[in-house]
Amino acid sequence: MLLEIENLRASIEGKEILKGINLNIPSGEVHAIMGPNGSGKSTLSSIIAGKDGYDISGSIRLDGQEILDWEPEIRSRAGIFLAFQYPVELPGVGLSSFLRACVNERRKYLGEPELDASAFLALMREKAAMVELSQELIRRPVNQGFSGGEKKRNEIFQMAMLEPRMAILDETDSGLDIDALRIVAEGVNKLRHAQRSMLVITHYQRLLEYIIPDRVHVLMDGAIVMSGDRTLALTLEEKGYDWIRAEQEVSS
């Protein structure tokens, strides 16, 4: 099992947001988490990546190792990648020098030699082409002056550069028009790999038409209330989240 989440609870300023999440993602699988606004989807992705400020209990294991007390950069170097829902801008920090430092940190961690400038540039060119990110954007500071769609493509580009084991895509589809969505999804599909798992967090079924998940989980009020194959996403699309609420009431 690549990622194991066990009875994960999280609260912020006394308010409980995650109320006991259990989730296992085997290597090579793509899982989707769907849920209405405020269900805790983004909190879950932030906590896996190591964001500060939550009171947490439970367990998150990567390859069987507990990671909850790891700093975010160690989690990253170990292979956890989060494509942010709202990528921040880094004024004045050039995208290529930023990524070069990031890639080499990961390589050092893995015991691989650092990439020299020309090897890095070649890699960057190749991966940028994959998500149709122009060379002009690569020369700019990270996300500065990028459109919403460009920022999202930049996240997938960085994912391609860092070659993570466990990629989390937090509402990568939000704010994208249909063409941008296609480009992003194609990029993600190219990165599917037997050694790489993905957790796709989304509000709508639309993205899952492009990125076909192995499993779909429904997150409501901080807990996973239903899991199934991809048809669950279609049912949700058709019947809405109220349907699940109704089901829940019946079963309780």
Binding site: A49, G50, K51, D52, G53, E71, P72, E73, R75, S76, R77, F81, L82, F84, P87, V88, L90, F98, L99, A101, C102, V103, E105, R106, Y109, Q158, L162
Partner: peptide, 16 residues
């Protein structure tokens, strides 16, 4: 320096 900017960088593998 905003915390969300630092988190973005550390998530990519950079030390604080």
């Amino acid at each position: 320096i905003a915390e969300d900017i630092l988190f973005y960088c550390t998530q990519r593998g950079l030390s604080r």
